[in-house]
Amino acid sequence: MTSTVEVKGASLDIAKLAGAALLLIVGIFAFYYFAPWSALLRVLGLLVIAGAAVAIALQTEPGRALWQFIADARMEVRKVVWPTRQETIQTTLVVMAMVVVVGLVLWLFDTVLMAILRFLTGQGG
């Protein structure tokens, strides 16, 4: 068996990703170069350039894989059974109560250990 490696597609993907990165760098440079201009115009220009860079990056194999991953993640999030408001409130109250209880237990443990340490070292009243 022989396997062939597709070098042409990979090099084209690298060129597209490099172009997208260069476009972002140029956009950031332009954002600061045109500092005297309106901030709104600079932000809009940067958003347009960033959108173009993302569009170019999504035309590559890694870009398509990332987009597929995002789509799969959204589909999985839709399958989640989210708790009701009442369940969320009850769970939050239980967590807050346990934080207080554990805090008190740790404080008591610290106090007892400190008293033992003071007794053993002869410090304190």
Rank of each mutant, 00 (worst) to 15 (best):
F31N: 08
T2L: 09
A65S: 15
G103T: 03
T88W: 10
V43C: 02
L47I: 13
L93E: 07
G19A: 00
I28E: 01
V81D: 13
V102D: 04
A55V: 10
I28S: 00
M1G: 10
E76M: 07
W107V: 09
Q123N: 09
G122Y: 02
L120Y: 14
L117Q: 13
V105C: 04
W37E: 07
G125C: 08
L120D: 00
V80M: 03
L17T: 01
T91L: 05
I49K: 01
V100F: 08
L93I: 12
R64C: 07
K79N: 07
V80H: 05
Q90E: 04
K16L: 05
F109S: 02
V7M: 10
Q123M: 14
T121K: 06
R85Y: 09
L58T: 05
F119P: 00
V81Y: 14
L93Y: 04
T60S: 05
A35F: 07
L22M: 10
L104C: 02
L23C: 09
G124M: 12
R85G: 12
F69C: 14
T2W: 11
L66N: 02
A55F: 05
A50C: 08
P83K: 08
A71Q: 11
M98V: 06
M96P: 14
V48R: 04
M1L: 13
A10D: 07
K8N: 08
L108T: 04
A97I: 13
